[in-house]
Design a protein around this nucleic acid. Structure first.
Lengths: 339, 339
DNA sequence: CTGTTAGCGCATTCAT
DNA sequence: ATGAATGCGCTAACAG
């Protein structure tokens, strides 16, 4: 049995291929009768236009690529969820490429995509990546790119990220509004820009609410569980223990939670704890914790929307702008049931 | 500036298009010199063959589609991780489609894919889906399909799933080997086939180890947190409390964990608890819990491997077979740091 | 309203 | 060892 294509339809109806083509695309200058005949036969024979022939002819693939470091990760899978939703609404197809934080792979993917396989690219850089030449090459080919989360500042395009400063501010404000007056910040790393921004938000929130910052309020933690817990134990059993704790990453919140249990400190009655988290862990197993979560889904949607806006205008250059989205507070997440 | 294609290369080198084409594909009957010249210019001009032209000509897209219910879910994102790894190794591209459990969307995606956009399909059915006609149509077009997790039994092809029976058996055996002699099973639903299979594994493990099963050992739980905890409280404070608990879903393990805390029962010293889980939750926040996890990554790899095997043989029909993979026990997961 | 013609970029058959 | 010609399936410009 032969493939069913335009030629086949045309032959069976004694029409020209172009007529059939126009009938199927509902062109103005085709009689209603032939349109109906054509559509009927197309349906009957289960005709599907060959997307590659069309792409070749129209020089557009109706496909975008998403390049991310990994996918087994709540943040990135939510981002893809958002991207896919927008893509579906725009009738676009989504190709996925995982770099596993490997710069060589990332560069290979990007260079391959210069072939015209996709109309646009959404990406989050591999942590290894410092050489950006592959990205320049891509934009030179006039393929629009939108960055999210881990962005490349040197390229003029749309970048969508979380507003870490604001998130830190909001988390701290949340504690203040719940009556905390002595709030500690559990920092995970001294110099990561994320941590820096969150901490600055924390500091500014305190200042704006006229709460003095004590040297001892900022606890610099590390990968060493025991060491961290020791510091937390000291902090929480000091003469003036904090009544609020803001953990910059989830793991620290969990360690803190355990120390509180140890010391028989009631969360949130005696100590209120808020933590950044992209996992569902903290809010699920330890409902007394409040979590603040990156707006992953919205980041995906925004990034995709920006890209499609450019694609709609036939690859008008994307303007250089930073879109920063706000994290959301979750006091207690509904408990999803899985596996 | 013009697109760089074969014609362009041919013109610049005073060669025929076909010669350039063959040189680039390293054909036998092209002199080494011209090959070198061609490759050099191709690199210099940053030539990338147009994948759509090639697909059109070769009638193969080097692309597969993955259709899944959702992605914001640890199980499915791990599956994709596995699929993508195998696809990368085979130099294939991966298109993602999310049905959000909607049968209409699923059917639309599948019907679209009959166009020849992909060489093969990997899918997990939407829970809504009971009408399988779109799947029959797909196989009629000789597009190979492999099912995973939520499979369609009526279609003769490869199906990759978790061996729930074996998983239940293993989890129970684990408790028995740790010295438990009075093991309770926390069932989540009376009739889900997953739950049924897991329970049967539990029952058979007990029988094989000559441990009698008591009526009261199986606790049928529901969506009602408080009700569940009440039942657990009864169970754990009865005259002969269980020394081992096997939770069929994570949520029940967490509820049980909390009840144990309440009753001051030490896990795992007094009660050992094992639970199914696809989240990292249980093992992260409650290290005393042992978790048993679906082999999501391997399911993805196996499904993709089976598909590529067929594609390698130019779409030889996939044999009808069920591949069942074993869950893995995790006593304590390394604590990943995120966000 | 419909048919004819001409490519999109590539791989391949058939010449030389 | 290379070139010329053909067509994959489709759309679009140009006739009529």
């Amino acid at each position: 049995m032969d493939q069913v294509n335009l030629k086949r339809l045309a032959k069976e109806l004694n029409l020209a291929v172009s007529t059939v083509s126009r009938a199927l695309s509902d062109s103005y200058d085709i009689s209603i009768e032939t349109k109906e005949k054509v559509n009927a036969l197309a349906k009957k024979l289960n005709y599907h236009p060959n997307p590659y022939a069309r792409s070749l002819r129209k020089r557009s693939s109706h496909t975008i690529a998403v390049i991310i470091p990994e996918i087994a990760n709540n943040f990135f899978s939510l981002v893809i969820d958002g991207i896919e939703e927008v893509a579906q609404a725009n009738d676009y197809h989504v190709l996925i490429y995982l770099t596993h934080e490997n710069h060589v792979k990332e560069a290979a993917f990007v260079r391959h995509l210069m072939s015209g396989r996709v109309d646009g690219v959404l990406m989050s850089l591999a942590s290894e990546t410092d050489d950006m030449s592959h990205l320049y090459e891509l934009t030179e080919q006039n393929i629009p790119v939108v960055f999210f989360d881990r962005v490349c500042d040197d390229i003029d395009t749309v970048k969508v990220t979380t507003n870490d400063y604001e998130s830190g501010y909001l988390a701290t404000k949340h504690l203040i509004e719940r009556g905390c007056t002595n709030i500690s910040y559990l920092a995970f790393s001294g110099n990561l820009s994320i941590d820096q921004n969150r901490k600055q938000g924390y500091l500014d929130a305190l200042e704006d609410h006229h709460i003095p910052v004590k040297e001892s309020s900022i606890l610099l933690c590390s990968n060493d569980d025991k060491e961290n817990k020791k510091k937390m134990r000291n902090l929480l059993s000091s003469e003036v223990p904090p009544d609020g704790i803001f953990a910059s990453v989830e793991l620290l919140a969990i360690q803190c939670y355990e120390v509180c249990k140890e010391l028989d400190l009631q969360i949130p009655r005696q100590v209120k704890v808020i933590s950044f988290s992209n996992l569902r862990t903290a809010s699920l197993l330890a409902p007394p914790l409040t979590t603040i979560t990156q707006p992953a889904f919205d980041i995906g949607k925004q990034a995709a929307s920006a890209l499609f806006q450019a694609l709609g205008k036939k690859a008008i250059k994307l303007s250089d702008q930073k879109i920063m989205l706000t994290s959301s507070l979750i006091e207690r997440e509904s408990t999803a049931i899985e596996g």
